[in-house]
Amino acid sequence: MKFVLVTGTTLSQAQGKEHGKVSPKYKEAVAVCELAEEDMERLGVKPGDPVRVTSPYGSVVVKAVKARDPTPGIAFIPTGIWANAVTAPETSAAGIPSYKCIEVEIEPAPGEKVPDLEELLKQSVGVKG
């Protein structure tokens, strides 16, 4: 299903960040995708189920959660490396990538694991050595 993806800061993302990016609290806070309840129903996923988010720039599995600010058609992933697996590198000659309003495809990903930080690093950025 097609969505417009918005990424941004949240309270728990900010708190998690201060615990360190390798902390479970941080992953808990940001490796999620907030969706409106009716969108979840249409996708056939329940809160806590893995979903795969795919943009022209990449793909990532995150946990579906109920949006606090539900707007059908809009998916929200908190700022972080999970979100940035799919954000757009184009800077429009302004230096800034497009972190918001990205067209994505979201589908249920039953059985797939939400990668932890190091796994995701390997998958979407690369490793040294």
């Binding site: 990016k21 697996a85 690369g126 490793v127």
Partner: peptide, 28 residues
């Protein structure tokens, strides 16, 4: 914090990280 398509280059060049916490950049 940068899109992965941009951050990829960090995997190809030497990186020095100064930070109190371990981060994705630190890992790389």
């Amino acid at each position: 914090n940068m899109p992965a398509q941009i951050a990829k280059h960090f995997a190809k060049i030497p990186v020095i990280d100064i930070d109190p916490l371990m981060t994705a950049t630190g890992l790389l």
